[in-house]
């Protein structure tokens, strides 16, 4: 093979992969038709952490003990022992709630249940799956090899590996629907939504929740709104409260293909630790590149055939020239 030919062939295949729109790029995945999810309204959260303790109860998670204070669950972030945690945003004197400067607010951290989940896309052994009906992103330890690519591939750092166990596994929120819990399948709502006294964590289908969120956005600040609690399709309570100064942004409507767990807040989301995501999911780009190269293994097969032919020819020539073996 001539060097020029080789470079030509290489450049051609590179062009296939790296073109402005790779040959087999796919769009973001669409939400499941009846995807269930949650809406977290940071302005309603009073920081009671009912959701944190209920989550631990439902998922049989131990408290996180810091130092020798044995009395309190002091989880600082998501971990293999904590699938859901309430964090505080504080600025300056932290005087008023839902105020960006000199204010504070609470923010929930738990799996966002992406519509186009990075963890599912990157998992080599299909241990992460998106439920086709509910859209819940589930984890299956029996398949998992512990490579932790899901952790790297998750924009929100949600999956957490049990580093401290000799035989650990990944832990993540599965919307209280994992085998043995199955609250959603039994017609219940998630533990956190059930426990939340203010409806800051609201359970429902993605469609309903998105509608609810947009309705709140559309109202004027100060207007009285009847906030539902629990399950949006059949709220157990309502309570009246004035509409706060919402950011006109529903986190999870579009970010990286959207999420089934959506957030709204009076404070910009970058202050609340949300990642700088674009509308296109990274997973869709990675898969586009991967499939451009490996679709039906056509490209590698052609390359192998070509290489075999060239190499065989070259070896034979060498052997004839030198009479030696390789």
């Amino acid at each position: 093979m001539k060097r020029r030919d080789f470079i030509k062939a290489t450049a051609a295949s590179a062009a296939v992969v790296c073109g402005p729109e790779t040959a087999l790029a796919r769009p973001n995945l669409e939400p499941a038709e009846n995807a269930v999810g949650m809406l977290f309204d940071s302005t309603l959260c009073v920081g009671c952490k009912a959701c944190v303790s209920k989550c631990k109860e439902v998922n049989s998670m131990p408290p996180v003990i810091e130092g020798d204070k044995l009395s309190w669950d002091s989880a600082r972030d998501l971990s293999p022992k904590t699938l859901n945690v309430i964090k505080v945003y504080k600025d300056g004197t932290a005087e008023s709630k839902d105020q960006e400067v000199d204010g504070f607010c609470f923010e929930k951290r738990s799996c966002m249940h992406c519509v186009d989940p990075g963890c599912v896309s990157v998992c080599p052994v299909t241990a992460m799956r998106r439920d086709p009906l509910t859209g819940i992103v589930t984890y299956h330890a029996d398949a998992c090899i512990g490579c932790r690519n899901c952790m790297v591939g998750c924009p929100y750092n949600v999956p957490q590996f049990e580093y401290d166990e000799a035989f650990g596994q990944i832990q993540k929120c599965q919307m209280c629907n994992q085998a043995g819990v199955e609250r959603i399948n039994n017609g219940q709502m998630t533990g956190c939504a059930e426990a939340c006294p203010t409806g800051a964590t609201l359970f429902g289908t993605r469609k309903e929740l998105l509608k609810e969120a947009k309705q709140r956005m559309a109202m004027k600040e100060g207007e009285i709104y009847n906030y539902p609690r629990g399950d949006l399709s059949k709220p157990d309570h309502y309570h009246e409260k004035a509409i706060p100064a919402y950011q006109q942004h529903i986190w999870g409507e579009k970010e990286a293909g959207g999420t089934n767990v959506m957030h709204i807040s009076a404070i910009p989301f970058d202050k609340l630790g949300m990642p700088p995501l674009k509308e296109r999911s990274s997973a869709s780009i990675a898969e586009g590149v991967q499939h451009s190269i490996y679709n039906y293994l056509a490209l590698p097969a052609i390359a192998l055939a070509g290489l075999s032919f060239v190499i065989r020819k070259n070896i034979n020539e060498d052997t004839e020239d030198q009479g030696g073996n390789s």
């Binding site: 920081g47 972030d77 945690v85 309430i86 609340l272």
Partner: peptide, 9 residues
């Protein structure tokens, strides 16, 4: 008792 946004385990 509240972890801040950038508190990590």
């Amino acid at each position: 008792t509240f972890p801040e946004i950038d508190d990590r385990e």
